[in-house]
Design a binder for these strands. Structure first.
Lengths: 157, 157
DNA sequence: TTTGAAATATGCAAAAT
DNA sequence: ATTTTGCATATTTCAAA
């Protein structure tokens, strides 16, 4: 696993991008920590290259978007196949998030979305055909994200 | 729950923003479905107002960022307090994601991040002090996101 | 509602410190 | 490594269709 020590500029960048990855401008971020927009731009590119920033994504309220079936599926797969299977499940239509867990059982958790119950049934079938045993299926009521507090700037400039 | 039927423009926007919320330009999106950047801009604002787009966030590789303790915590709370408690747990330092589940037991799932085991222990203590019973704690090995496939454009223009 | 054009902002690259 | 400058692009606004 590669490393990299984060300074205040990096932290401010990551915090801002966790808050609003689309509208946080390089200048705004730079002003908070006293560097120019160019520096912020360079750093963001570095952080992406270093694999610290993995993605920028919009989070949706799937119900409001017309997909009221939003579920969490527990899966049980052999440990040595876990990573490969996790990647394959990502390609099943309706799957939006996969977590690999360091657990003896229920070691993959899949977040999936559909318009109808049949859509979810189809996803579970697809999992079954991939040799993935599903052990539980739970409706997700709501989901919230927060930036990592350790990255929050103290109050500079 | 409010509604809104998504047309092809909306879908293309949501798909693009799920792929790269920071770098997807309004023009690129518009070109794909044959509308101008202005229209895309207007639509994005609408989708945000309607609560369909809830957030834009950067996803991080916490290990590479210097936070190797990345865990999923199962919590068991009284159903009628679930939403209120879920919101409060978001303010505990280190908590980055909370899912409310429609389940009799283990109905809140908390994703938390720390530098050391003690950080995680502290988070669990904080939960306990909020009256939240934690029933399990599992290391997260990896996590992947995908745009919702139903939103993918067919191939227009 | 969508557009097109103007005005504003933003990000990026190159050269300099 | 960061900044300054200059350039190319992106976004927003608003009048008009």
């Amino acid at each position: 696993m590669s490393w990299r020590l984060l300074d205040d500029v990096d932290k401010a960048i990551l915090y801002a991008l966790q808050q609003d990855a689309r509208n946080a401008t390089t200048r705004e971020i730079g002003d908070q920590v006293g560097v120019t927009a160019s520096t912020v731009s360079n750093r963001i590119a570095e952080l992406k290259d270093d694999g610290i920033i993995t993605n920028y994504l919009a989070t949706l309220d799937y119900s409001r978007a017309g997909f009221p079936m939003h579920v969490l599926i527990h899966c049980d797969v052999p440990v040595h196949d876990r990573e490969a299977i996790a990647h394959r499940t990502l390609d099943i239509p309706g799957v939006v998030n996969v977590r690999e867990l360091m657990s003896g059982t229920d070691n993959i958790r899949i977040e999936a979305v559909g318009e109808t119950r049949d859509d979810i049934t189809g996803i579970v079938s697809a999992l079954s055909e991939e040799g993935v045993q599903t052990t539980d299926e739970i409706l997700i009521q709501n989901q919230h994200f927060r930036p990592l507090s350790s990255l929050e700037p103290e109050g500079e400039d």
